[in-house]
Design a protein around this nucleic acid. Structure first.
Lengths: 198, 198, 198, 198
DNA sequence: GGCTAATCGAGACGGTACGTCTCGTCTTGTA
DNA sequence: TACAAGACGAGACGTACCGTCTCGATTAGCC
């Protein structure tokens, strides 16, 4: 019988050490060279302690990143009243992160996990991405109420309209990831979403 | 000296067997369980024969999929004169493919490769994706000339506007992939790209 | 400080359970599969309770067997006056035990311990084997006094002459372990030990 | 299918390295600390290469020792015509080896294997011990023909009479292992085996 | 049509990491 | 504080593949 371990007795110190080691190794050597063995060694932890609480490398990475994100508190977009300016800011920020090979390495890793495991995909979506998307969605909702967006606009689709093209270009390297590009996206999205009789 | 092998003496039978085995295994067990060893065994081929002609698993998969795609000939979009209808058709087709887990397994494999190796990413982009994107781009160019699109529209960005949101939703499973969704994308894109004083 | 545990507070119930479980597992699955973990589980005891009072598996097994043996009281050989007959009886009995795979499993276990740890070897020798050897020695001493053995015979060596060949054959399976074999040993030993001018 | 490996393609260099490493580690750290992992590392060999050709640690050790023994050629006892002197020499030699903790470590390892696995026991007996025992047996046979032994003496039993007590004393450390002890054994054995009307 | 050199199938090799197992210690309530 | 329970650090286990390296046994293109 592989009896389930008792979470109440879990060592917080080990949990912390494992997630810290994971992030450290991720930054130092990238996802490709990240092994469970290396994490255990770096964390000063037995491998079994990792396998006891996680299903594998992917799950550990997810938790490590989720912890990192959630420690920053829920993301909120500024609401200056000027929707276009606010979106420009956030889209420029995301594009900048994707353009930085160092920062986007993590995103790359996560995306691979997302494509490889359905369960991890859910987790990534809900714990890492959703908060960011929701922040944008909230800003758009307020804009819609203020009449800066068509009343009938589907906010989820609107968010994807902003985010999707960016990720696509990033993944396939089909073009530069610059501020100009970011602004272009916002222009297009605004053109699509602005009330018709502007 | 590891003298380069002589392509003239390459066994076409082995090349075929390897690519076929790769596609078969990809469909049967997915990308995760696809190993060079398994390909060799399935193809009735020595491992060295694979490493002699390809740099590794990724390269083989790429070739296998490229062969599959190119055998269908270059994709062309219909040009009925009605841009919106034509786009609806193609976007619906792509959405349908992504919604089918069997068909999208291939895309999944490719996307992983794209994320894993810069050199493979280039190949994937140029040999597999570009033709599809170019087909759409060509249709959009003809529409722009016909005055159905803003004169100043950036066609690359326009293509990404159509494609990006779809892939994003597919990867993250953030929503349903239906005809209605496809139509919604086209609506938004048209709203963004249509000449202002329509 | 790893303060020594207080034997006064030791749980007799646990001690008993551990030794019983050890014997039970030894009979059921053999020495190879006998782990401290299994003993603890079977005895309904924490592993620490074992390690608190014993140095490891070997020590527990030793204690378990010693308890088993000592509960039977000190062994005594019959003294019928006919030395050869008495020896035949005891040697046949030992040979029979060694021939039975079930019974000799325990001896096997002990012998391994003996070979693995000097301290355990001492214990095994003194607590388990010595009583048996001494019983034979006592019988031989009485025979020597009765003039049935050479006066100058070294009794320890005499005991080994009886016991050693048997164990050797048992360990190496170099021949059958039968009553005839037992009798042959006694014949040889008697030939060696009988007063010359018989 | 775990197809059997092809012995014809076996690397003699690896085989040698593995057996050498095994002997070296055995002498340095003893059987207890001997792991397959350590052997592989020391031999500069992949673990799989060990598992490909041997069933586990025991089998490797056996082969290593067998190689060591067989490289010395088949053992032959001198036949000076004086049986007692010849036996004294060989028994003293064996006792000396058992008395040396360094040399007897090997014997200890083998004996443990013998006790742990029936299949290994057979191998140990036939490949390592039998040659030694047979050498003694041969000497005894020639002595019997020369009339120095009882005609009806069972040679196997005679060999065990010489060897058994020694091993017993060695295993259980029930007494000193000295030349005097060796001579005592020979005396006893001769007394048992000499023709009656000597 | 025979020669010869490279490719082929096969698979053994030195490695790395896997995920599991067991060890002996440490930790956490309970009595 | 001894106990039952079991998580922990450690590290060996035996397996799966990696990419490289021999092996004969086909091939192919040049004589």
């Amino acid at each position: 019988m592989p009896n389930a371990p008792d979470p109440a007795r879990r060592s917080e110190r080990s949990r912390k050490a494992i997630l810290d080691a994971t992030l450290a190794l991720l930054h130092e050597s990238g996802y490709r060279d990240l092994t469970v063995e290396a994490i255990a060694a770096r964390a000063g932890v037995g491998k079994q302690t990792i396998y006891r609480w996680w299903s594998g490398r992917g799950a550990v990475v997810l938790d490590a990143l989720a912890e990192q994100v959630s420690s920053a508190g829920p993301p909120v977009l500024p609401d200056s009243g000027d929707l276009e300016a606010d979106l420009r800011a956030v889209v420029r920020a995301i594009v900048a992160e994707l353009a930085d090979p160092r920062l986007s390495a993590t995103t790359r890793a996560l995306t691979i996990e997302t494509l490889s495991s359905e369960t991890l995909a859910e987790q990534v979506r809900d714990r890492l991405l959703r908060p960011q998307l929701d922040a944008i969605k909230t800003r758009l909702r307020s804009a819609r109420q203020a009449g800066h967006l068509r009343k009938e606009a589907d906010l989820d689709q609107a968010v994807e309209l902003l985010i999707g093209p960016m990720y696509h270009r990033w993944m396939l390297r089909t073009g530069p990831l610059t501020d100009e590009y970011a602004d272009g996206i916002v222009d297009l999205a605004m053109a699509a979403l602005r009330p018709r009789a502007a």
